[in-house]
Design a protein around this nucleic acid. Structure first.
Length: 127
RNA sequence: CGAGUAAAUUGGACAGUCGCGCCCCAAAAGGGUGAGGAAAGUCCGGGCUUCACAGAGCAGGGUGCCGGCUAACGGCCGGUGGAGGCGACUCCAAGGCUAGUGCAACAGAAAUAAACCGCCUGCGUCAUCAGGUAAGGGUGGAAAGGUGGGGUAAGAGCCCACCGUUUUGUCGGUAACGACGAAAGCCAUGUAAACCCCACUUGAAGCAAGACCAAGAAACAACAAAAGGGGCUGCUCGUCCCGUUUCGCCAUAGCGUCGCUUGAGCCUGCCGGUAACGGCAGGACUAGAUAGAUGACUGUCCACGACAGAAACCGGCUUAUAGAUUUGCUCACAUA
RNA sequence: GCAGUUGUGGCGGAAUUGGCAUACGCGCUAGACUAAGGAUCUAGUCCGGGUUUCUGGGUAGGGGUUCAAGUCCCCUCAACUGCA
């Protein structure tokens, strides 16, 4: 991915957990913290409670794919941790995608999307 | 065709767009390649690595009908015995309680030891008492080989026949064992998945093993001896290494390199072997990450896709598994 | 990845060499005491059939050895711990 590294070390995760802001919905939890660089760092955490290794790796891939397809719109300079909750194990790709967009929007990391939405609305009203 | 039994194969396919790990290329573009039959459980066995050499003895652990295969095994193949099934066929930790020790609750007269009831004899009879008796009753998982006959006061391998058991001979088989015969009236239940005996086998830990490179902190003249400590293992031997003690702080470590994938491996053919397997010849050889790569979308088709994701490797076992395909054999029915 | 430990009523936790499964404590239910509550005392409390007695099953799940298994052996499941 072009603008995104991955969070690797445990201390990086703990720093974000301690200092960052968290917002959750039914399927995911998202921690966000400014890191003062021109890149984003993404960490995905799927605990053993979610399921077996097949389930966990599939959940990881769905979250990663959802993030990748949204990457161009997301603000830069943040550490983001996405934690999967137990209910994700039965979710489809579309549900995960919508859930991730929902949390990114609540964190205010999707300015382009909101602008786009506003533009669409303006266009609709203009028409 | 129906019912069954044994085994083998497969585990969605094709096309396009975007994306990921590794490799090729000086780089880019581009190209190649990318999870399983169980990758799982970690139940066994191996190679490999470290422990000086991987050594000796004891203890401990494992296995347990016989023979073979194998690097090895608790695996596989073939056979023996036993159990089940009309049959194809399936299942069995299957050495030794006749080496010793332990245990066998409750019930029952009595549990490894026998007289409660009963039967019989004697004191004329009954009762009682004394004695004989394990055929019958009852208890129990188990009650002193079983059935039938003779015998007796009543009974008893007391005697006989058959069956079983033990010992032994001949023959067959590498062997487990089998067949046939002889002898012994049969000193004795179960449990060894109780201790144990016998035979074989086993050093310990595990790729987070470990090797190398880089960086940092502390301490230190050299040699020898003693004591102490440590490593290999539970102990003894043997052997090697080392200034010691206390307190505090940091920390999943350095996006390090190797180990890391070509291997007791796979496919095809021929030969040997009942088979497991072995030999020879030819051919292909393409996951190797290090917070960890296989996904998303679209279209077409069908049976609408189960169980499930590599983390050093290999041989097995066990467990999970939608559906599809193939072959051998058995039984029943029908027909000829 | 490798190595290991544990599993018994609603909860904690006993059960000797295999021999009557849940002793004991907490909690819960009913009753007594009280104007009421608390505390205290009494009784009950694994599940099904019957509701006094009786009877069948049950120690994470499945099988085996044994006359008999919570206990011994094998397989599976779940929870937990350690290892640079």
């Amino acid at each position: 991915m072009k603008h995104t590294q991955s969070l690797k070390k445990n201390y990086q995760f703990r720093y974000v957990y301690r200092k960052g802001n968290s917002i959750a919905n039914r399927q995911l939890v998202m921690y966000v913290l400014k890191n003062g660089t021109q890149e984003n760092k993404l960490g995905i955490s799927v605990s053993k409670k979610v399921g077996k290794s097949v389930v966990r790796s599939r959940v990881t891939r769905l979250i990663k794919e959802s993030y990748r397809l949204s990457e161009e719109e997301i603000k830069l300079g943040y550490d983001i941790i996405v934690i999967a909750r137990t209910s994700v194990k039965d979710a489809t790709y579309q549900e995960v995608f919508a859930s991730l967009r929902h949390l990114l929007h609540k964190h205010g990391l999707l300015p382009k999307r909101s602008e786009a939405v506003q533009e669409e609305r303006q266009e609709e009203t203009a028409e």
